[in-house]
Design a protein around this nucleic acid. Structure first.
Lengths: 209, 209
DNA sequence: AACGGTATTGTACTTAAGGACAGGAAAGGT
DNA sequence: ACCTTTCCTGTCCTTAAGTACAATACCGTT
């Protein structure tokens, strides 16, 4: 399928042509034939030189016209990527990406997929999972802990080490460990990091391992 | 490329066979030929009948073995999808998805893309953008971290161990430790428990020790 | 008196975490 | 061409965390 580029200068970069010899480039979205929108073709939007308002405006316009949009940036940044994807882009890459990569992106988005660098995927999943899990209710299973266990758990929740907890509660480190082991078992937690998060109402992605 | 399915019953569903006549199905990951992992082939993981712990465990195992994983659910849900993608899956769809859709998913993930239903994409972008805009002003000290360090820190924030982070980010445990040491230094933290708390906006009693 | 639960503690052990020292590769800036 | 930064990884080491097995003392209940 023919690739369409939207770039301010109206110029086709060498790598774009190498990746798609039959590609066409336009300066304005209005110059693109209506037929292309009907076919939900892919439009590669070069946002080089545009400020935030301009690129969001341009992007929304292209998305609203029915195209699938891949945003191309000269200075890829994750906030910018998230903005673009949130505004409806289905891909995000560097303006000077290698021709093979451009062809992969084209293939992916032509078939309904999303394309972005793996490290951006990681970031995206990380931050979004945090929001999702925060909606979870408080842990009623804390009721299963004895008073002493709760004291130990509260110290862990503050980030204290076993040695510090022992000093604070005036017991041995061995006793602290004993309490912690029981706490982990009761709450189905693997270690103190997860306990600290749970105690602070931040449920984890990995509660069992 | 040959498609590989991982399903508890070891049975290939009709739609899967229709989409990929040459597909093979296994009950256990250990049954898959080693060659498939080396080629980073796609594995379709049917999570029907598995509880949270089981499916995360199974998914991590498959991802850690080098496969690209598409998770198939009988009851697609957004939290489940986010969990799956965060654990390294590159696709998420219904176990009874249409054969044409299965082929599209296969094509997308074979070329380095992500595949999930459009409405999930929207939700994902929504919640993650909300987090991005909210976290920025509260943690200016995180600006000192490089992109990769931030990724490691986020995994710790979720309660992940070094081994899990290594698997998720596809680096060695040694590299994870190296990043963590630098993070602790930059943020003046003693250990991962404190890092997890800081990342989740929870104040600690002992930030230096 | 006997029993169960809780709290505490010991020895011993394995695994995970974290630090020290060292080095290579890639990318960007001068 | 050179330097710096970032990312990655190795070997080696110590310390912290956590588990296993075992035991005693206290308190409340039966």
């Amino acid at each position: 399928m023919e690739q369409l580029f939207l770039a301010s200068g109206g110029k086709l970069r060498a790598r774009w042509r190498e990746a798609f010899p039959a590609a066409r480039v336009f300066s304005l979205i209005g110059d693109i034939p209506d037929e292309a929108a009907r076919l939900q073709q892919v439009v590669w939007l070069d946002i080089t030189g545009l400020d935030v308002a301009q690129r969001l405006s341009r992007l929304r316009e292209v998305v609203a016209s029915g195209y699938r949009v891949v945003v191309m940036s000269a200075t890829p940044a994750e906030a910018e990527a998230f903005e673009a994807l949130n505004a409806g882009a289905v891909g995000y890459c560097h303006v000077e990406a290698a021709p093979e990569q451009l062809r992969e992106v084209a293939l992916v988005v032509a078939h309904g997929g999303l394309w972005m660098l793996p490290e951006l995927v990681q970031r995206l999943m990380s931050v979004s999972l945090r929001v999702m899990s925060r909606l979870a209710p408080e842990h009623p299973e804390l009721d299963a802990l004895t008073a002493r266990e709760l004291m130990v758990a509260e110290q862990v929740a503050l980030g204290a080490s076993n040695r510090e907890i022992a000093g604070t509660l005036d017991i041995t480190e061995r006793t602290v460990k004993a309490h912690l082991s029981v706490i982990f078992e009761k709450l189905h937690l693997r270690d103190r990091v997860q306990l600290a998060l749970v105690m602070n109402n931040v449920p984890t992605a990995t509660s069992v391992n």
